[in-house]
Lab assay of single mutants.
Amino acid sequence: YFQGQLNAMAHQIQEMFPQVPYHLVLQDLQLTRSVEITTDNILEGRI
């Protein structure tokens, strides 16, 4: 994955969860590489 793709995914998640800091979303995406998994992590309070 290149950074631009991760940034696009992070923006997509931020639209759904504007209360979660962008850098935390991006940090999780770098591990998961998945909008779905990061979204689940937010919903389950891991982020």
Rank of each mutant, 00 (worst) to 15 (best):
I37W: 08
Q14A: 12
Q30I: 15
R46D: 02
Q3D: 15
I37S: 07
P21K: 05
Y1F: 12
T38K: 00
I37Y: 06
M16F: 07
R46Y: 06
R33D: 06
P21S: 08
I13A: 01
E15Q: 13
I42E: 00
V35L: 10
V25H: 01
E36T: 09
L24E: 13
N41L: 03
Y1R: 13
M16W: 09
L6N: 02
F2G: 13
L29H: 00
Q5H: 11
A8K: 10
A10H: 02
V20K: 00
V20A: 05
F2S: 13
I37E: 09
E44W: 08
L6S: 03
Q5G: 09
L24I: 11
Q19E: 14
L43G: 03
G4I: 11
F17Q: 01
D40H: 14
P18H: 03
T38C: 12
E36V: 09
Q27W: 12
H11S: 10
A8M: 12
R33M: 15
V20D: 06
A10M: 07
Q14V: 14
F2Q: 12
R46N: 05
T38G: 00
A10I: 08
G4L: 11
A10W: 06
D40L: 14
A8W: 11
F2D: 15
D40N: 15
S34Q: 03
N7H: 15
L24K: 08
V35W: 07
P21C: 12
Q5L: 14
R33H: 14
L43N: 07
M9A: 06
I13Q: 00
D28F: 06
Y22C: 15
L26H: 04
D40Q: 15
I13L: 10
L29M: 03
I13R: 00
L6K: 02
L29P: 00
L43E: 05
F17W: 05
Q14L: 13
H11W: 08
G45R: 05
F2H: 13
N7S: 11
H23C: 15
N7Y: 13
D40A: 14
H11F: 08
Q14S: 12
Y22Q: 12
G45S: 05
P21T: 05
Q12I: 12
Q3C: 13
L31C: 14
L43Q: 07
L43H: 05
Q12M: 13
Q5I: 13
A8N: 09
N7I: 15
Q5R: 06
F17P: 00
T38Y: 00
G4F: 08
T38D: 01
